[in-house]
C-alpha cells in the first residue's frame, strides 16, 4: 500500500515500566525450567495501558516539537483496556492536550492493534485528512499463572506521530502491507481474566504464516530484497520466533538485533513490534532503511518500510527506550502478583 502524499514519522516515544520478573523466579515458583525470555517487565501499582500510552505519547510530542492541539487523531491499540467500555484514547488525548479537535478510538487486534492504528494514521495523513495523527501500541499483557505465556506477558508501549513527509520527518514511509486470515490461535473471551491459546498452533499456521505472508507481499510490491534493509523488526513474542522467521526470510540476526528487546522486557503484545521499531530508530542513521512487521493473533500481520532522515539524529534526544530498559528493579513473584492486582486486598 502506498499513500497519495508521502507520509513519515515526525516523533516517537517508547516506554517500559521499571519492574522486572526474571524467568528464574517463575521457575522457582512452579518448579519449571523455561526461559523464552530472560525477564519481563511488570507495571507499577499505579500503571495501566493508559498511563503507559500517555508516557509514550508525551515523549512523541516532545520529540516531534509540535503543538499537541494540532494532533487530529489518537488511536490506542491494546488488548488490555482499563475500561471494557470507555475509550483509552480520550484519556490520552486529554492528557497530551490534543482535545477537542481530534478523532479517537481504541483498536483491538491482539498483538497487532498498535500497527493497525499505525496503518489508520498513515491513511489519514496520506489522504490529507489530518496533519498529525498518533498511533499507540501498548499493553499490560495477561498470562495465566503457570501457563507458558506467564514467562513473557509483559507491559510497555510505543507511540508514533505521523505527518506529511518534510525535513521534520525522522523516518518516512515507503510502503505498507497487511495480511489477514481468520486463524483462532489465541483469544480471550469477554469477562475472562486470561487469554487461551492453541499452544503449538500459534506457531507455524499462525505467527510464521502471517509474518511470512506480509513480508513477502511487501517485498514483492516494492521490489526490495532483505539485504537492502539496514534493520528489520519482527513481532517478538519471545526471543526464538523473530530470529527463526527472520532467517527463513533471508534477514540476518545483525539486522534484527537492535530492535530485539523482548529478552529484556518480554512480550508487550500490541507494544511489541512498535517498541522494536523505536529501539531501532534510537540507533539508526539517516538513510537507513528499516523493515518492520507485526503479528496479531486471530490473525494478521502489518508490514512497513521506513527510511530514516536527518531529523532523526536531532530529535531523538532525551531518555530513550534503552534508558527505560536499563532503569529496572527485579521483583519476586509475590510482588509481581501484587502489581498485577492479583492479591485480593
Amino acid at each position: 500500500m502506498k499513500t497519495l502524499r508521502q507520509v513519515g514519522i515526525v516523533g516517537y516515544g517508547a516506554y517500559v515500566p521499571m519492574y522486572r520478573l526474571n524467568a528464574a523466579e517463575i521457575n522457582r515458583m512452579w518448579g519449571t525450567s523455561g526461559a523464552p525470555v530472560e525477564e519481563k517487565s511488570v507495571v507499577a501499582l499505579d500503571e495501566d495501558t493508559v498511563t503507559i500510552s500517555v508516557e509514550c505519547a508525551k515523549q512523541a510530542v516532545r520529540r516531534a516539537r509540535i503543538d499537541p492541539s494540532l494532533i487530529g487523531a489518537v488511536y490506542v491499540g491494546t488488548e488490555s483496556k482499563p475500561y471494557a467500555v470507555k475509550p483509552s484514547g480520550t484519556i490520552v488525548a486529554e492528557a497530551i492536550g490534543a482535545t477537542p479537535s481530534v478523532s479517537t478510538a481504541d483498536y483491538e487486534f491482539a498483538c497487532k492493534a498498535g500497527t493497525e492504528a499505525m496503518q489508520t494514521c498513515i491513511g489519514l495523513v496520506g489522504s490529507g485528512m489530518q496533519r498529525y495523527a498518533m498511533a499507540i501500541g501498548a499493553d499490560t499483557a495477561q498470562g495465566r499463572p503457570a501457563d507458558a505465556l506467564e514467562y513473557t506477558a509483559a507491559c510497555g508501549g510505543a507511540a508514533y506521530i505521523f505527518a506529511e513527509r518534510s525535513a521534520e520527518t525522522v523516518a518516512y514511509l515507503e510502503a505498507s502491507y497487511s495480511y489477514v486470515t481468520d486463524t483462532p490461535d489465541f483469544w480471550r473471551r469477554a469477562k475472562e481474566m486470561y487469554p487461551r491459546h492453541g499452544n503449538r498452533f500459534t506457531g507455524e499456521p499462525a505467527y510464521f504464516k502471517h509474518i511470512t505472508g506480509a513480508t513477502k507481499g511487501l517485498l514483492k510490491e516494492t521490489g526490495y530484497g532483505p539485504e537492502e534493509f539496514k534493520y528489520a523488526v519482527f513481532h517478538q513474542p519471545n526471543t526464538k520466533f523473530p530470529i527463526t522467521v527472520a532467517r527463513s526470510l533471508g534477514f540476518s540476526v545483525d539486522q534484527i538485533n537492535p530492535g530485539l528487546v523482548v529478552g529484556k522486557v518480554g512480550n508487550t503484545y500490541a507494544g511489541s513490534s512498535p517498541m522494536g521499531l523505536a529501539a531501532t530508530l534510537d540507533v539508526a542513521e539517516p538513510g537507513d532503511r528499516i523493515f518492520m512487521v507485526s503479528y496479531g493473533s486471530g490473525s494478521g500481520s502489518d508490514a512497513f518500510i521506513f527510511t530514516a532522515q536527518d531529523a532523526l539524529r536531532d530529535k531523538r534526544g532525551g531518555p530513550n527506550l534503552k534508558g527505560f530498559i536499563d532503569r529496572k528493579r527485579n521483583v519476586d513473584y509475590a510482588t509481581y502478583l501484587r502489581h498485577r492486582g492479583q492479591i485480593i486486598q
Partner: peptide, 26 residues
C-alpha cells in the same frame, strides 16, 4: 512529572488519573 493512576472508585467505578513525580530519567 508522570501520568499515573491515583485511585479507583472500586472495580466498577471510574479510574482516576493524575500527576505524580518520579526520579528523573536521564
Amino acid at each position: 512529572a508522570v501520568f499515573r493512576k491515583v485511585r479507583e472508585d472500586g472495580p466498577s467505578g471510574i479510574i482516576m488519573y493524575g500527576y505524580k513525580f518520579r526520579p528523573m530519567v536521564e
